[in-house]
């Protein structure tokens, strides 16, 4: 472990993309204050994949890396829908996931918000409504916010979450 601490002392903060970091800092500041006001400092998100190609999940995982580090802003990806304020829904809503998404949604405490992630759920991208693809609209659940992109980049997801917070009543 000594090696690790030595390395840490050598280069303490990762600054690789200066311009990008600057933009991000601005967004993050705003995000933190919004979450502080509207969710008492902690926004819990339940990520549900309903038949995506796993790129959206990879980008959400990337949000937790040291460059973005969402957790320090108070955004947590939680393990149970019962702990969640919002559901981040990715994927095309395939036939085999349809009822499981409904189950997960009904386990969430109200008010529960659905945020669709990527082009898939609203069938705006490559995938169209077809025999095994139902799309998020068929769920008949209120979709509160949409983050577009295929897949949306981490920065776009952060911006999307910020707009989500701005739109909240």
């Amino acid at each position: 472990m000594i090696k690790f601490w030595k390395k840490r002392a050598e280069n303490s903060i990762a600054t690789r993309h200066l311009k990008f970091d600057k933009d991000l800092e601005e967004i993050k500041k705003e995000l933190k204050s919004k979450i502080g006001k509207k969710f008492a400092g902690s926004l819990a998100i339940r990520m549900v994949s309903s038949g995506s190609c796993n790129a959206c999940e990879a980008e959400c995982n990337a949000l937790l890396n040291p460059y973005y580090d969402l957790e320090r802003l108070g955004i947590h990806f939680v393990a149970s829908p019962r702990h969640a304020d919002a559901m981040l829904l990715s994927g095309v809503v395939g036939v085999n996931m349809y009822h499981h998404i409904l189950d997960a949604y009904h386990q969430m405490p109200q008010p529960a918000y659905i945020i669709t992630l990527g082009d898939c759920p609203l069938l705006e991208g490559t995938f169209e409504k077809s025999v095994a693809i139902k799309g998020a609209k068929s769920l008949d659940l209120p979709i509160f916010h949409h983050i577009a992109g295929c897949p949306p980049e981490p920065k776009e997801i952060i911006e999307g979450l910020l707009t989500f917070l701005k739109h909240l009543p």
């Binding site: 085999n96 095994a132 693809i133």
Partner: peptide, 10 residues
Amino acid sequence: FYTYRGIEKV
């Protein structure tokens, strides 16, 4: 096969 999208058919 929860993420089944029927790609072969489409």
